[in-house]
Amino acid sequence: MKITKEEVEYVAKLARMYLSKEEAKMFTGQLDKILDYINLLNELDVNDVQPTSQSVSKRNVLRKDTADNTFKKEESLKNAPSQDKGFFKVPKVIE
């Protein structure tokens, strides 16, 4: 598999990042090299292997349904880049 410039651009769009022409070219080259290395995994037969997504074997970590607001409103908003009347403010969303 070889990653194309179009795929790099698609991925950047999914990840909400702009790439300059040079960056797109650079990332395409670098990611291609990394993916080429990663393709090493293809030499293994893993058909009968179960995937591991965590290295803990815990099950059913649950909390009781009790309500307890931990933050004061100021704390929730204290890092907001833009806020008004208790809301976070963002550029207009057109729906």
Binding site: D68, N69, S76, G86
Partner: peptide, 27 residues
């Protein structure tokens, strides 16, 4: 109809001040 949210202890109460029912998890 639970008292608290699915992944944190914030209240699910309707009609509170904006962002009043929030914490590090749900923010």
């Amino acid at each position: 109809l639970t008292d608290s949210k699915i992944f944190c202890g914030c209240s699910t109460k309707f009609g509170n001040e904006p962002n009043e029912n929030t914490c590090m998890v749900c923010l």
